[in-house]
Write a protein that binds this DNA or RNA. Sequence first.
DNA 1: TAGCATGTGCAGACCACGTGAAGGCTGGGA
DNA 2: TCCCAGCCTTCACGTGGTCTGCACATGCTA
Lengths: 236, 236
Amino acid sequence: MSLNNISILLVEDHRQLAQTIVEFLEETGALVDYAGDGNLARTLLSEHHYDLVLLDIMLPGEDGYAVCEHLRQELALDTPVVFLTARDQLDDKLEGFARGGDDYLTKPFALPELKARVEALVRRDRREVAEHVMRVGDLEVDVARLRATRAGEPLKLSPTAFRILRILVRESPRVVSREQLEQELWGELVPDSDALRSHLYNLRKAVDKPFASAMLTTLPGVGFSIQEPEVATQSE
Amino acid sequence: MSLNNISILLVEDHRQLAQTIVEFLEETGALVDYAGDGNLARTLLSEHHYDLVLLDIMLPGEDGYAVCEHLRQELALDTPVVFLTARDQLDDKLEGFARGGDDYLTKPFALPELKARVEALVRRDRREVAEHVMRVGDLEVDVARLRATRAGEPLKLSPTAFRILRILVRESPRVVSREQLEQELWGELVPDSDALRSHLYNLRKAVDKPFASAMLTTLPGVGFSIQEPEVATQSE
DNA sequence: TAGCATGTGCAGACCACGTGAAGGCTGGGA
DNA sequence: TCCCAGCCTTCACGTGGTCTGCACATGCTA
């Protein structure tokens, strides 16, 4: 059940197989979107955040390779990509990796193996492999002990504030949209009125207020991010 | 040849196979250490840094699973681990991932596939998956941070202005038509009166006005493009 | 010169955000 | 069992920034 709240995009034109995979992944707690062709996949990828993409190669219209390349180049996303395909020739696999894929799974495959590979990629992407302390600048977040410090000073955070900080640090320096934050914090049960604002306000009071420089920045209409307070390095 | 200077630890008790793999990897530019059993592997892991570990499961003494677990827990290293083994049962694979492995390759395997999988893990570990900074001349657009600079100077852009700039830089030096821009910015909901002109005006104020040369050029009746300020290159 | 495409500038509406406080829930300790 | 302390949520208010729509200027083309 460690795929809880992981959002996955499945791109696969074979309805039957797609249905099977979706049901299996959702049982493990994942949130799965589904696209039957490359165009829909492109649209979804540009409009939503996914933690991982499962990509068939043979699709109506453009193929899976092209979708992956588009993802990497035009959209500039490093979302993990797993190719799922019946093609088992070595050259096909090499092509998949060359186009930016992270893994390549040959049909037919066992669903538990799919799950294991997805988990492996997600935990690596989230840096949850071995080290449980994440750092951004002088900010440290100890996921195991649920403690955070800045410049050595322990921060007093409520549970929710800590979870928000953890997400932001994990994604740093990427910008995280309000929707993505709400999704990960509450899943289906997003509070009516945006409590998120209050939590961010409190988080800011703890993380930024006592210090000289602010790390938590807002991009109005877009989202939030944690970044190293940078230095006015100009010239040289 | 993209494994240049990558340091790899191979743990494998079968001499012949080990030799083959080492030679192959070294040909691609990797620096390979070799251990024939779990104890030596432990020692090497604790004394040297590796970018990646190739791990046989059946070893004299403790098995590969145990080595991997030791690596993750006691040594607290998140070095990518690829299991190489003749065991092809599903449960074996699941065990490999459960113990902290990143990939699992069944013998016999093609050496180029090994190389591709190693490359995929290394580039992900180095976050070289997708480039987040796009450049045209002295103009830089950081898609992840949603920030842009020109000649090192940060540009103050509204969200919409940034989106326009991102599109133009992505397509550069191609010309983007007004219709294409509006389509990508607003989709179905294109504003009545052309707000695009105002946005381009503001974008120009930020990107070109403060600098000597203009990069954002208009082709009347056709569209807009971003190009390097060079140079009296005319002809053809 | 007429007509069109674009550049320039601005003001109002609107939205998202920061801020702060109050009420209700929960869990633990007395 | 009661009480208390956090914590989460909700609401209300003020504000700053953004987008849009418009008006007018400019310049190019036929």
